[in-house]
Amino acid sequence: MNFFRLLGDLSHLASILILLHKIKTTRSCRGLSFKTQALYVAVFITRYLDLTYRWVSLYNFVMKLFFIGSSCATLYLMRYKYCPTHDPSIDTFKIEYLVGPCAILALIFNYKFSVSEVLWSFSIFLESVAILPQLFMLQRTGEAETITTHYLAALGIYRAFYIPNWIYRYFTEGVVDPIAIVAGIAQTGLYLDFFYVYFTKVMQGEKFELPA
């Protein structure tokens, strides 16, 4: 564990708490992509299968449980409790275009051709693009509630913090994880447009609005 990874994980944790807070306080999941949330459930379940057979640390264990639990809870809230506030007609990104290529990539790029390793690779690739339905939705509506933008910012920053973590680990431990690094850089890249608007508008107290 190092400082950058801890910051990344805390940012990830914060993003989920902000998301749940948004849903609870506004009693609505307006502006949120159900598809993105469903992809995160798939990401966490396929990546954290090792919970059942490998012990890393208490920190690792608790965080994994939290990520699986909270993503399932979010999905439940969106699907049942606040279902009427979710508008499927604007959540139209075709996730087949994400899941299919990620599955193929995972079959080609993995550290070992075993079920758990291929699923791990799949989860890394899928995570890197899971935000696309959400960003696509944002693009369509052209605006977002401020709390939703805080959620997205925290979620985007999380993987960005992992980049210095990987550099640090390379120099201190000699650990290199090319699959995670390439996917993590791509994942962070997807947020650049969003970050630009977030830091120049929302952080200055303005509403998040995309230019028409």
Binding site: R5, D9, H12, D50, R54, V56, S57, N60, M63, K64, F67, Y111, W120, Y162, N165, G174, V175, V176, D177, A180
Partner: peptide, 10 residues
């Protein structure tokens, strides 16, 4: 040469 990836990250 690559070490076996420990997958100790989240």
């Amino acid at each position: 040469q690559a070490k076996e990836t420990p997958h100790d990250e989240l």
